[in-house]
Structures are given as C-alpha cells and as structure tokens.
Amino acid sequence: MKKQQNSLLLALRLTAVVAVTTLLLAVVNAVTAPVIAERVRREGMQAREALIPGSAALLSSPELSEAEAKTVGDIYRITRDDAVQGYCVDISVNGFGGTISMIVAVSVDRNILGVKILSHSETPGIGSKAVEEDGALLAALKDIPVRGVHSVEGISGATVSSKAILSGVLTATQVVERLEQERGGA
C-alpha cells in the first residue's frame, strides 16, 4: 500500500514539473509564433520578388506525382500587368548534410531565371561551394533555357550537393512545364 502511494506521489510530482514547463512554453510560443511566421513569409516574399518581380499568387493544390510531392512545396504564379510572367517553386531536396531548401524561378517562356537557396546544412568549405549565393553553380543556373539544365556541370568536390540542386531544379521545370500546358489548354 505504501509503495503504491509512493509511486503515485512520484507520478504527481513529475506531472507537476511537466505541466509548469508546458505552460511556460505555451506562453513563449504564443509570443514568438506570429513573429516567426511573419519573418518566414517576408523572407519568401523578398526572395520571390527578387527572382521575378510581380504579384505572387499561391496555387492551391496543384497536381503532383508522388515523387514530385516529396520535393515540391508551395508554387506561386507570378503575374505583372495581367500577364503571367512565370512561377516560383519551393523545392526541398536532400543534399549531403541534410535538406537544402530553395526557390526555383521559371518563366513562361521556359527560362530558368534563378535559384535562391533558403537554407542548407552542407559541409562548410566543401559541399557549401554548391550553395553559395555567388558560387559558380547558382551563376550557371541563372537566365538559361530549361533545356540547358542537363548541360550544367556540378562543382567538383561538391558533387552530391550539386546533383541535389540540379535534380531539384529539374523537378521544378517539369512541374512548371505541366502547369503551363494545363493553362494553355484551358
């Protein structure tokens, strides 16, 4: 009997500690959540605006294959003066050190306008060469026709990271190609 009481006491005390901690976190989260959401939204918006100027509209439930759904996130259709300029596709791929998330901008005339890396965890100084803002890979992926992706070469020493980015860009172009065909047909 005494033993039971003892374990009940243990459970109650541990529950009390957990409850108070949870309460603290709920308060902090309530304060920071809107700030974080706003920041993420603004960063995405700035990145898209820099790639294709215009007003962005989030496409609701675009049709994606199972493989595409793994890498493709939000897709925005960018319009300016009532004319569709292109698309910004959020892509997450597995690099060498974890997920690389980026925005790929493809114009309606099937050009890749640019790639913006939002976050990555590639090895500093080695794999990170592929994701550098002013690096050779992102420069090669700026203002080129979609067909040109196949001839873009990876950065030596950063093969895995380069291939991941290129495959993500390729997926984005395929999705945009389909979206454009659907739009043209409709």
Binding site: L14, V17, T21, L24, L25, V28, V31, T32, V35, I36
Partner: peptide, 22 residues
Amino acid sequence: AYIVIVAGFVTVVDLLLKAYFP
C-alpha cells in the same frame, strides 16, 4: 524532471533566437 526543465529552457532560447535573431 531535469531533462524536462532543461528542455523547457532550451526551447525558450530556440524560439527567441528564431524570432529575433534569425
């Protein structure tokens, strides 16, 4: 109990950094 307390404070730090020092 220690882990819960420590994890609580760490999460506070994590959220604050994400919100104000991205």
